[in-house]
């Protein structure tokens, strides 16, 4: 997969320039080989990773070793497992030591069932981390006011959910996403809920700057092929957004003027 675009439609976050608008998560893959294959097929330049305590006795597979060797990829540690702001801040500091980049995906979901982000703890963690110089990318409910508040405390991007994490519900929050996109001055990345490439394309058509997928690739029939399909969908959606989508029909003039006959003048 081509990693270097021609630079004409790059987007910038945290002072780094990216041509790919697809971000990949690295969880839930059957093995390291498939994960690396999927990351390569996706063309992703930002890849999320998680942070765990090292098992003292068990020797798990080193899933990420091959990723480090790929080059050209920004590793973005997430704060999954954190249940509040203090834990997320701690996780971010550790992640920075390991990931080698100031990028951090702040995710705080205290409820283990629906995994919905906690807006208050997320805000607090984002505020602290942004002040420490992190490139903060918060996973957040699709709430336009929270989006403004997160932007105001210095987040580098916004990552609203398309629908509940792992639900495959697509862009259930489309109406709120439109408001977030309209007012945001930082990149908006739809994170969570996407199931198929067509939904990723729809997010880009709507004006999102990028999407992040993980389950939709890892849990598909052929993760590597699906990663490539998402890559194509994201390019198609972005190109459609730039080209300008055809308006809906119905703009024809009416012969009668029941509402406007009180108006004088020619209107020229």
């Amino acid at each position: 997969m081509e990693r270097q675009g021609n630079g004409q439609d790059d987007w910038i976050v945290g002072g780094r320039r990216f041509s790919s608008r697809l971000l990949m998560g690295t969880g839930k893959f059957q093995d390291s080989e498939t994960m690396v294959g999927a990351v390569l097929a996706s063309g992703a330049q930002i890849v999320t990773v998680a942070l765990r305590r090292v098992g003292r006795v068990s020797r798990e597979d080193d899933m990420l070793g091959p990723l480090h060797r790929l080059g050209g990829i920004t590793l973005m540690p997430n704060t999954s497992g954190a249940r509040n702001a203090a834990e997320a801040v701690r996780a971010a500091r550790l992640g920075r030591e390991l990931g080698g980049s100031p990028f951090v995906k702040v995710e705080i979901h205290p409820n283990p069932h629906h995994l919905m982000p906690d807006p208050i703890e997320t805000f607090e963690a984002a505020r602290v981390l942004a002040a420490e110089g992190f490139v903060v990318m918060p996973y957040m409910p699709a709430d336009p006011v929270l989006a403004r508040r997160l932007e105001d405390v210095g987040c580098a991007s916004l990552m609203p959910l398309g629908s509940a994490i792992g639900s495959g519900g697509g862009l259930a929050t489309a109406e709120m996403l439109r408001l977030i996109i309209r007012d945001a001055r930082i990149p908006v990345i739809v994170d969570a809920g996407l199931r198929s490439p067509s939904e990723a394309a729809a997010a880009l058509e709507m004006g999102c700057d990028a999407v992040l997928v993980n389950s939709a690739v890892a849990a598909s029939g052929d993760p590597i092929a699906m990663a490539a399909a998402f890559a194509q969908a994201v390019v198609a959606g972005r190109n459609a957004h730039r080209a300008g989508i055809m308006p809906r029909g119905g703009g024809t003039a009416l012969a009668t003027s029941p509402l406007t006959e009180f108006i004088s003048g020619e209107g020229t």
Partner: peptide, 26 residues
Amino acid sequence: IPAVSRDACGLREGDCIDLFRLVGGG
């Protein structure tokens, strides 16, 4: 403890050490 300071960083009786690594995640 940053990686560069590990050689110089001595241990004492009763110290608590936590070790973390990156794993796959979304």
